[in-house]
């Protein structure tokens, strides 16, 4: 019998090790797996390389992980958001390294990593400062940049419903980076509002097939970053 359920967010992130590469889903607060991130803060792993579109807001979720000093490098497309003060301070003081990646290139690097493709050519960023040091090649008279696939040791993802086989469906624009990150991580951990038995999700609507997911954990009533920030919460 396959049962990928784990009983708590703490158990789900228990084996994240120092120096791990951790992909964190979410675009702004939509799809940000707050409970898994907070469990990771409690767990204590450090010197992490985080792959995420943003850097969180206030002092909760991803911003709290950064503030706790656990992230040595972030691979990111837009590390500047309203209410985002933690990362700018870390960046200016040189405590966290930033690899800035165009958003579509970031998504495709993650997808490629999960699809067994070590590199690909993209037209994005040709002729810009983000092309510096990158191999380029001409196809059909147009210049493209070589970009590398990205893999991770762990991915922290927020879905809506999963079954115990790890099949996942998402909620609206909270889907964002979840499916490609699940593919790219050795251990994809998905928090969902509800875990159901196999057969309860119509196979026609499965978004992330269970083969890409190693652990599911039920967080029935997940917090939202904006609500925590508005309430003045600072984690831990």
């Amino acid at each position: 019998m396959i049962d990928k359920r784990v009983s708590s967010a703490a158990e789900a992130v228990g084996d994240v090790f120092d120096g791990a590469v951790v992909m964190v889903g979410g675009f702004g607060e939509a799809g940000s797996p707050i409970e898994l991130i907070h469990a990771l803060i409690d767990q204590g792993a450090t010197d992490l390389t985080v792959v995420s579109n943003n850097t969180g807001s206030g002092e909760v979720g991803l911003a709290a992980l950064l503030k706790a000093g656990r992230v040595s490098k972030i691979i990111c497309s837009f590390p500047r958001t309203a209410n985002s003060t933690v990362f700018p301070d870390l960046y200016r003081s040189g405590k966290t390294e930033l690899e800035l990646v165009p958003q579509g290139t970031l998504a495709e690097r993650i997808r490629a990593g999960g699809a067994g493709i070590p590199g690909f050519y993209t037209p994005a960023a040709v002729g810009t400062p983000l092309a510096e040091g990158k191999e380029s090649r001409e196809f059909d008279g147009q210049e493209f940049l070589l970009e590398r696939g990205l893999k991770a040791d762990f991915a922290l993802i927020k879905g809506q419903v999963a079954d115990t086989h790890g099949n996942v469906i998402y909620n609206k624009t909270a889907r964002n980076f979840g499916p490609p990150m699940a593919m790219a991580a050795k251990v994809a951990i998905v928090q969902v509002n509800e875990v159901v038995e196999p057969g309860e999700i119509d196979p026609e609507i499965v978004v992330t097939p269970g083969i890409f997911v190693q652990r599911v954990v039920e967080v029935a009533d997940p917090a939202f970053e904006s609500e925590l920030v508005a309430a003045g919460v600072s984690y831990p």
Partner: peptide
């Protein structure tokens, strides 16, 4: 020099 660089999807959009 002190700005936090942030690019988002603009480079992908103009290229594609």
């Amino acid at each position: 020099p002190d700005a936090i660089p942030a690019v988002g999807g603009a480079m992908d959009l103009v290229a594609g």
